[in-house]
């Protein structure tokens, strides 16, 4: 299968300008997507500990858990922003 071939330097040189631009855009988007995904992994791990009790049933999330998770993410972001703001004000002193 052609798609399983490995790409080497001579293949890269075949890329025309239009495809190069497209690839740059693709990688910029992918980097963004990756960053969001890895932040989601971290947040899920943090908020799981706070919102999902050992006794809660399995399968789907119940309403309480769902809103706890959403609040957890939002307050984490608030805390993050508050830290940044305070840091900025400390630097100005």
């Amino acid at each position: 299968m052609a798609s399983d071939l490995t790409i080497d330097q001579s293949d890269i040189e075949k890329l025309n300008d239009k495809d190069k631009t497209e690839l740059r855009q693709f990688f910029a988007n992918e980097e963004h997507r990756s960053r969001i995904q890895s932040q989601t992994h971290e947040l899920t791990s943090i908020c799981w500990k706070k919102c999902i009790t050992p006794r809660s049933g399995g399968g789907a999330l119940d309403k309480t858990e769902q809103s706890c998770l959403a609040n957890c993410v939002d307050r984490f972001m608030d805390a993050n922003l508050a830290t940044m703001k305070h840091l900025a004000s400390m630097r100005q002193q």
């Binding site: 969001i36 995904q37 932040q39 989601t40 992994h41 947040l43 899920t44 908020c47 799981w48 919102c51 999902i52 809660s56 049933g57 399995g58 399968g59 789907a60 999330l61 858990e65 769902q66 998770l69 959403a70 957890c72 993410v73 939002d74 972001m77």
Partner: peptide, 24 residues
């Protein structure tokens, strides 16, 4: 049984967190 349902729950939590994070 606990592992299976925990796994489903973790995935649901991941999706919820992802949606909230993107919205934010």
């Amino acid at each position: 049984t606990c592992l299976t349902s925990c796994m489903e729950k973790y995935m649901a939590a991941w999706n919820e967190v992802n949606a909230t994070y993107i919205r934010r």
